[in-house]
Design a protein around this nucleic acid. Sequence first.
DNA 1: CGTTGTATTGAGTGGTTTCAAACGTAGTGG
DNA 2: CCACTACGTTTGAAACCACTCAATACAACG
Lengths: 259, 259
Amino acid sequence: MLSIAAPTPAVVRVPHTARHVDRAAPQTAGAHIAEALKLLQDTLPIQRRLVHAGDTIYQAGERFGCLHVVHSGIFKIITYSADGREQVAGFHFKGDWMGFDGIANGRYGCDAVAMDTAEVWSFRYDTLLQACVEHPELLALVHAAMSREITRDRDSLLSLCTLSADARVADFLRYWAESLAARGLRTDQITLRLTRAEIGNYLGMKLETVSRAMSRLAREKVIRFAERGRRELQIPDIDALREFVQRSLGAPAASRTLQ
Amino acid sequence: MLSIAAPTPAVVRVPHTARHVDRAAPQTAGAHIAEALKLLQDTLPIQRRLVHAGDTIYQAGERFGCLHVVHSGIFKIITYSADGREQVAGFHFKGDWMGFDGIANGRYGCDAVAMDTAEVWSFRYDTLLQACVEHPELLALVHAAMSREITRDRDSLLSLCTLSADARVADFLRYWAESLAARGLRTDQITLRLTRAEIGNYLGMKLETVSRAMSRLAREKVIRFAERGRRELQIPDIDALREFVQRSLGAPAASRTLQ
DNA sequence: CGTTGTATTGAGTGGTTTCAAACGTAGTGG
DNA sequence: CCACTACGTTTGAAACCACTCAATACAACG
C-alpha cells in the first residue's frame, strides 16, 4: 500500500518561506554569498569577465572546462531539445553557479545568457578540484550549490504541475522577488528584463496568458505597474503573492494532486 | 540528449575491468554502472538495504547524512510544497544516486520511495568525502551523477512546457524505456509500477488524460497493452515513440517556443 | 462473490490557446 | 520635432485541449 496522499508531514519540514525570510534580514541578506565569493577569491585563480545583456557565457554543445559564478547581474539558462525546441530553464543570481550540467558528459547542455550588464567569475573545473583537496570548504560550497540547483528545479516542476496559469505567474514573481531579497536587493521596484514571451516559455504558457495573468494580479492589487512601461513593476507585499497562489488553489482546475 | 555533439567524457575515467557481466545486455549496456558500483564497493563501507514496494529510503524533513545509490529496483522521488501539494519529481534506476537535495541545508527535501522490491546502497556523506581525497574517481562519479540529475530535471521541464498531453505521455514512455535499455534491461515488455494518477502527477495532467493518451498511443500502435491488465505494456519500437512526439509537435497547441 | 482500488470512456465545462486588432514605447532618420 | 518603423504589450472573440463529473469495466483479494 503506497499511501502517498498523507499531506501531514511526519517529520519537520522546512518550508521555503522560512529559508528565504531568514536571509532577507536587512543586515545579513547576502552574507553567505559575500563569504562564498571571498572564499573563492582567496583560494582560486579567478578569471573575471564583464558582459552585457545578450552575451552568452557558454553555449550548448561547447566543450566543458569551467564553472562560473555570478558576481553581479542575472543570467538565464536556455536548453534545447534534439528537434530544436528551446526552453528557458532557469535563472541565476549573484552567488549562483553555472555550468554543472557540463560535468557529466564533457559538454555544456545549455546556453547561459546575461540578461543585463553583469560580471561573472570563471574557474577551470580541474583546478577547482585540486584546490578542494586543500580547502574542503570549497568543495562544500560547490556541493551546496549543486544541491540547491536540484532542489530549485524540483520546485519549478511542482509549480508547473500543480498551479494554474495565474498562480504560476504569481509564484514566479514571488520567486524572483525572494531571490532579489535574499541578496539584499530592492524588491519593491523590480525591472523584469524578460519579455512576456520568455516568461511564458519558462512557465509553460503563451505570452498572452502571461499578460492576462499580470493584468489580473494588478487588478487585485497584488502587484502594481510602474508609471513608465509595463516592464517594471512593484511588489508591495511578497506575502500577498503567496496568498494569491493559495486562493487560486481552491477554486479552479488546480488540484492536480494524487487521488 | 542533445543532438549536437559526441559525448566524449573529459572527466577521470575508471579503468576497464574484465568482468562486468550485466545480464541480458547488448554488451556495453550498463557497463559504466557496473564499474561505478564496483568502485563504490571497493572504496567505501557500504550499508546495503533491501526494501519492498512502498518503503521509503528517506523522507522530506529528515536529517541528511547519507547518500544512496540504487543497486536494483526503481525509486520515485516525491516533493512537497509548503502548503502540502505533492509532486512526483523523478525516478531513479540502477546506478542513480539519491539524496543530493539534502546536502545544501542538512535535511532531505523530498521522499524517496521504492516502487518494487529493491536494493539500495547507502553511504555516509562525510565518509564519502574523506574517501574522495584518496580516490578522485569517486568524486568524479558523484559529480557526474549530480550533473546528470540537473540535466534530467531540465529535460523534464522542457517536456512539460513544450509538449501536448499525448506527446508528454509518449515522451515519458520513451524516457522510461531508454532508462531500462541503458541498464541492459528488457524494453519490449515493461511493467509500469505506477498508477495513472502518479503518471499524471509527474506529467502535470489528470489520470483520465493519461488514460486517454495511452489509449490513443495503443490505437496508433506506438505501444501495445499486454494481455493481462493495462499496467504492463510493450514498446515494439522506441523510435516510434519519438516519431509520435514529432508528429504531435506539428499540429496542435504545441509550439510554445520563443519569438 | 462482494469489495476495493484502478482503468476506461463519454458528455459537458472551462481554462488556455489561437487569431486578430489596437496600443505604447523606443529607436531612427528625415 | 515628428513621422515612420520595430518591437513588445494588452485585450477581445472564437476554437480547442484538458479537466470535471459520472458511469462502467476490469483485476486483485479476502
